[in-house]
Protein backbone atom coordinates (compact mmCIF):
# COMPACT_ATOMS: atom_id res chain seq x y z
CA UNK A 1 0.00 0.00 0.00
CA UNK A 2 1.18 3.46 -0.92
CA UNK A 3 2.09 6.03 1.69
CA UNK A 4 1.83 9.75 0.98
CA UNK A 5 3.94 12.57 2.35
CA UNK A 6 2.87 16.15 1.68
CA UNK A 7 4.45 19.60 1.55
CA UNK A 8 2.80 22.86 2.60
CA UNK A 9 2.89 23.88 -1.06
CA UNK A 10 0.69 20.90 -1.99
CA UNK A 11 3.18 18.54 -3.55
CA UNK A 12 3.23 14.92 -2.50
CA UNK A 13 5.77 12.14 -2.44
CA UNK A 14 4.25 8.72 -2.78
CA UNK A 15 6.15 5.75 -1.47
CA UNK A 16 5.06 2.58 -3.19
CA UNK A 17 6.96 -0.69 -2.74
CA UNK A 18 10.28 1.07 -2.25
CA UNK A 19 9.72 3.42 -5.21
CA UNK A 20 9.07 7.15 -4.90
CA UNK A 21 6.86 9.38 -7.02
CA UNK A 22 6.36 13.14 -6.89
CA UNK A 23 3.18 14.93 -7.90
CA UNK A 24 0.69 17.60 -6.90
CA UNK A 25 -2.05 16.81 -4.41
CA UNK A 26 -5.66 16.31 -5.33
CA UNK A 27 -6.39 19.57 -3.53
CA UNK A 28 -3.82 21.36 -5.72
CA UNK A 29 -5.33 20.07 -8.96
CA UNK A 30 -8.77 21.22 -7.82
CA UNK A 31 -7.40 24.66 -7.10
CA UNK A 32 -5.72 24.88 -10.51
CA UNK A 33 -8.65 23.70 -12.56
CA UNK A 34 -8.30 22.16 -16.02
CA UNK A 35 -4.65 21.34 -16.55
CA UNK A 36 -3.54 21.89 -20.14
CA UNK A 37 0.22 21.50 -20.07
CA UNK A 38 2.87 19.97 -17.83
CA UNK A 39 6.53 20.83 -18.27
CA UNK A 40 8.74 18.04 -17.00
CA UNK A 41 12.51 17.91 -16.51
CA UNK A 42 14.91 15.54 -18.22
CA UNK A 43 15.48 12.10 -16.80
CA UNK A 44 18.55 12.09 -14.61
CA UNK A 45 18.09 15.74 -13.59
CA UNK A 46 18.95 16.50 -9.98
CA UNK A 47 17.25 19.06 -7.79
CA UNK A 48 18.10 20.59 -4.45
CA UNK A 49 15.63 21.42 -1.73
CA UNK A 50 13.46 24.38 -2.78
CA UNK A 51 14.08 24.04 -6.52
CA UNK A 52 11.33 24.23 -9.10
CA UNK A 53 11.25 20.77 -10.69
CA UNK A 54 8.12 20.98 -12.90
CA UNK A 55 5.56 23.51 -14.11
CA UNK A 56 1.87 22.75 -14.30
CA UNK A 57 -0.30 25.01 -16.42
CA UNK A 58 -4.07 25.19 -16.28
CA UNK A 59 -6.36 27.25 -18.48
CA UNK A 60 -6.13 30.17 -16.08
CA UNK A 61 -3.00 29.66 -14.04
CA UNK A 62 0.61 28.57 -14.05
CA UNK A 63 1.93 26.71 -11.01
CA UNK A 64 5.52 25.89 -10.21
CA UNK A 65 6.09 22.54 -8.55
CA UNK A 66 8.77 22.74 -5.86
CA UNK A 67 10.68 19.96 -4.27
CA UNK A 68 11.22 20.14 -0.53
CA UNK A 69 13.81 17.37 -0.69
CA UNK A 70 16.97 16.80 -2.68
CA UNK A 71 16.10 14.35 -5.43
CA UNK A 72 17.12 12.81 -8.73
CA UNK A 73 14.62 12.22 -11.55
CA UNK A 74 14.51 8.52 -12.47
CA UNK A 75 11.62 8.85 -14.94
CA UNK A 76 9.01 11.36 -16.00
CA UNK A 77 5.35 10.57 -16.64
CA UNK A 78 5.40 10.62 -20.44
CA UNK A 79 1.64 10.13 -20.70
CA UNK A 80 1.21 13.74 -19.52
CA UNK A 81 2.56 15.07 -22.79
CA UNK A 82 -0.65 14.06 -24.56
CA UNK A 83 -2.92 13.68 -21.54
CA UNK A 84 -2.19 16.50 -19.08
CA UNK A 85 -5.78 16.03 -17.83
CA UNK A 86 -4.56 12.88 -16.04
CA UNK A 87 -3.41 15.21 -13.29
CA UNK A 88 -7.01 16.36 -12.82
CA UNK A 89 -8.45 12.90 -13.10
CA UNK A 90 -6.05 11.08 -10.80
CA UNK A 91 -3.49 13.49 -9.32
CA UNK A 92 -2.20 11.06 -6.72
CA UNK A 93 -2.31 7.99 -8.96
CA UNK A 94 -1.84 7.91 -12.73
CA UNK A 95 -1.26 11.68 -12.74
CA UNK A 96 2.12 11.51 -11.00
CA UNK A 97 4.80 13.82 -12.42
CA UNK A 98 8.19 12.31 -11.58
CA UNK A 99 9.57 9.00 -10.44
CA UNK A 100 12.39 9.99 -8.13
CA UNK A 101 15.34 8.79 -6.14
CA UNK A 102 15.86 10.43 -2.75
CA UNK A 103 19.34 11.10 -1.45
CA UNK A 104 18.07 10.59 2.08
CA UNK A 105 14.68 8.96 2.71
CA UNK A 106 14.96 9.94 6.35
CA UNK A 107 13.94 13.49 5.47
CA UNK A 108 10.46 12.27 4.51
CA UNK A 109 9.72 12.47 8.21
CA UNK A 110 9.91 16.26 7.90
CA UNK A 111 6.87 16.27 5.57
CA UNK A 112 3.21 15.95 6.58
CA UNK A 113 1.49 12.61 6.67
CA UNK A 114 -2.04 12.17 5.31
CA UNK A 115 -3.76 13.12 8.57
CA UNK A 116 -1.65 16.25 9.02
CA UNK A 117 -2.21 17.33 5.43
CA UNK A 118 -5.97 16.75 5.68
CA UNK A 119 -6.01 18.87 8.83
CA UNK A 120 -3.95 21.68 7.30
CA UNK A 121 -5.74 24.96 6.64
CA UNK A 122 -5.79 25.22 2.84
Amino acid sequence: MATFYYTKTHEYIREDGGEYYLGISDHAQQELGDITYVELPAEGAEFAQGDVCCTVESVKAVAEVYTQLALKVVAVNERLEDEPELVNQDAQGAGWLLKIELADTGVLASLMDQAAYDAMEK
Partner: peptide
Protein backbone atom coordinates in the same frame (compact mmCIF):
# COMPACT_ATOMS: atom_id res chain seq x y z
CA UNK B 1 -19.06 26.92 -8.03
CA UNK B 2 -15.42 27.74 -7.52
CA UNK B 3 -15.74 31.40 -6.50
CA UNK B 4 -13.16 34.10 -6.93
CA UNK B 5 -12.74 37.84 -6.75
CA UNK B 6 -13.47 39.70 -9.96
CA UNK B 7 -13.97 43.46 -10.25
CA UNK B 8 -14.91 43.73 -6.59
CA UNK B 9 -17.42 40.90 -6.77
CA UNK B 10 -17.29 37.34 -5.54
CA UNK B 11 -18.10 35.57 -8.80
CA UNK B 12 -18.18 31.99 -10.13
CA UNK B 13 -14.90 31.25 -11.94
CA UNK B 14 -16.05 27.79 -12.90
CA UNK B 15 -18.56 25.17 -11.85
CA UNK B 16 -17.30 21.90 -13.33
CA UNK B 17 -14.26 23.11 -15.28
CA UNK B 18 -13.33 25.82 -17.76
CA UNK B 19 -12.73 23.50 -20.73
CA UNK B 20 -15.98 21.63 -20.33
Amino acid sequence: ARLGAFAGFEMPLWYTGIKE
